[in-house]
Lab assay of single mutants.
Amino acid sequence: AQASVVANQLIPINTRLTLVMMRSEVVTPVGIPAEDIPALVSMQVNRAVPLGTTLMPDMVKGYA
């Protein structure tokens, strides 16, 4: 199954992502693919992302 990017902590709005904030997990619905984690580093989220939330393309500025 495809692993997705999941928030490893609460990520406040406009925060630049770092590796420690993200983990890969097989979840439904599928979000951003886990292999994109390196590309997500330093991108900003456009909303607060609670712990355990799957990151979707529309949550990350410049990803989609």
Rank of each mutant, 00 (worst) to 15 (best):
A1C: 06
A1M: 11
A1W: 11
A1S: 10
A1T: 13
Q2N: 07
Q2K: 13
Q2T: 14
Q2P: 15
Q2D: 13
Q2A: 12
Q2R: 12
A3G: 13
A3L: 11
A3I: 13
A3D: 07
S4K: 00
S4Y: 03
S4E: 00
S4F: 02
S4T: 04
S4Q: 01
S4R: 00
S4P: 02
V5F: 02
V5G: 02
V6L: 06
V6H: 02
V6C: 03
V6M: 05
V6F: 02
V6D: 01
A7I: 06
A7F: 02
A7M: 04
A7N: 00
N8Q: 11
N8I: 09
N8H: 07
N8D: 11
N8C: 04
N8S: 09
N8Y: 04
N8V: 10
Q9F: 10
Q9N: 08
Q9V: 11
Q9M: 13
Q9G: 06
L10A: 10
L10C: 05
L10V: 11
L10D: 11
L10K: 13
L10G: 09
I11L: 09
I11W: 01
I11S: 00
I11M: 05
I11D: 01
P12W: 05
P12S: 11
P12K: 10
P12N: 11
P12M: 06
P12I: 06
I13H: 13
I13G: 11
I13C: 07
I13R: 10
I13Y: 14
I13P: 10
N14M: 12
N14Q: 09
N14E: 09
N14C: 04
N14L: 10
N14K: 06
N14R: 10
N14D: 13
N14A: 10
T15E: 11
T15D: 05
T15R: 06
T15K: 07
T15H: 06
T15G: 08
T15N: 05
R16Q: 15
R16L: 15
R16H: 14
R16N: 12
R16K: 09
R16A: 15
L17G: 01
L17I: 11
L17P: 02
L17V: 03
L17S: 00
L17H: 00
T18Q: 11
T18M: 12
T18S: 12
T18D: 09
T18P: 01
L19V: 12
L19I: 10
L19K: 13
L19R: 10
L19Y: 06
L19P: 10
L19S: 07
L19Q: 06
V20K: 15
V20G: 13
V20H: 15
V20Q: 15
V20M: 11
M21K: 03
M21P: 01
M21V: 04
M21Y: 05
M21E: 02
M21T: 03
M21H: 07
M21N: 09
M21R: 03
M21L: 05
M22R: 00
M22Y: 02
M22S: 01
M22N: 01
R23W: 04
R23Y: 06
R23I: 07
R23D: 06
R23H: 05
S24V: 11
S24Q: 09
S24F: 07
S24A: 15
S24R: 12
S24G: 08
S24H: 10
S24L: 03
E25W: 06
E25F: 06
E25C: 04
V26G: 04
V26M: 09
V26S: 11
V26E: 10
V27G: 03
V27M: 11
V27C: 04
V27Q: 04
V27A: 06
T28A: 12
T28Q: 15
T28N: 13
T28E: 11
T28Y: 15
T28R: 07
P29W: 03
P29Q: 05
P29N: 04
P29E: 07
P29M: 04
P29G: 03
V30S: 14
V30E: 11
V30M: 09
V30R: 14
V30W: 13
V30L: 15
V30N: 10
V30H: 10
G31C: 03
G31E: 02
G31K: 00
G31Y: 02
G31D: 00
G31T: 01
G31L: 02
G31A: 03
G31P: 01
I32R: 00
I32P: 00
I32V: 11
I32E: 01
I32L: 05
I32W: 03
I32T: 01
P33R: 14
P33W: 08
P33A: 11
P33G: 06
A34K: 07
A34C: 05
A34W: 06
A34V: 10
E35H: 11
E35Q: 12
E35M: 13
E35S: 14
E35R: 15
E35I: 11
D36R: 15
D36F: 11
D36W: 08
D36C: 05
D36Y: 12
D36V: 09
D36P: 00
D36K: 14
I37F: 03
I37C: 04
I37R: 09
I37W: 03
I37Y: 03
I37S: 05
I37T: 10
P38M: 12
P38G: 10
P38E: 07
P38C: 04
P38D: 13
P38R: 11
P38I: 08
P38S: 12
P38T: 13
P38L: 10
P38N: 07
P38Q: 11
A39T: 15
A39R: 12
A39D: 07
A39E: 07
A39Q: 12
A39H: 12
A39G: 08
A39P: 03
L40W: 02
L40G: 00
V41C: 04
V41R: 07
V41L: 11
V41G: 02
V41F: 05
V41D: 04
S42I: 03
S42D: 13
S42W: 09
S42T: 10
S42N: 09
S42Y: 07
S42K: 12
S42P: 02
S42A: 10
M43E: 06
M43F: 10
M43H: 12
M43N: 05
M43R: 12
M43C: 03
M43V: 05
M43K: 15
M43A: 11
M43I: 04
Q44E: 13
Q44R: 13
Q44A: 06
Q44T: 12
V45N: 03
V45A: 06
V45S: 05
N46W: 08
N46M: 13
N46G: 06
N46V: 11
N46C: 04
N46P: 03
N46Q: 10
R47G: 06
R47P: 02
R47N: 10
R47Y: 12
R47K: 07
R47F: 08
R47L: 12
R47V: 14
A48N: 13
A48M: 14
A48K: 09
A48G: 10
A48C: 04
A48T: 09
A48R: 09
V49G: 01
V49Q: 02
V49S: 02
V49A: 05
V49P: 02
V49H: 02
P50W: 05
P50Q: 09
P50T: 12
P50E: 15
P50L: 14
P50D: 10
L51H: 14
L51P: 11
L51F: 13
L51V: 10
L51G: 15
L51A: 12
G52K: 04
G52V: 02
G52W: 05
G52I: 02
G52P: 00
G52C: 03
G52T: 02
T53C: 04
T53H: 10
T53F: 10
T53D: 09
T53N: 13
T53Q: 11
T53G: 12
T54L: 04
T54M: 03
T54E: 02
T54P: 08
T54N: 02
T54C: 04
L55F: 10
L55D: 01
L55W: 01
L55K: 00
L55V: 11
L55N: 00
M56T: 13
M56F: 11
M56K: 08
M56A: 07
M56C: 03
P57Q: 08
P57I: 06
P57F: 09
P57S: 09
P57R: 10
P57G: 09
P57A: 14
P57T: 06
D58Q: 12
D58H: 09
D58Y: 13
D58V: 08
D58P: 07
D58S: 13
D58N: 11
D58C: 05
D58I: 14
D58E: 13
M59L: 05
M59D: 14
M59Y: 09
M59H: 12
M59R: 03
M59W: 14
M59K: 01
M59P: 00
V60Q: 01
V60I: 08
V60D: 01
V60Y: 01
V60G: 01
V60F: 06
V60P: 00
V60S: 01
V60L: 11
K61Y: 13
K61V: 15
K61S: 15
G62M: 06
G62T: 07
G62E: 14
Y63A: 05
Y63T: 04
Y63C: 03
Y63G: 05
Y63R: 03
Y63E: 05
A64W: 04
A64Y: 04
A64R: 03
A64S: 13
A64M: 08
A64H: 12
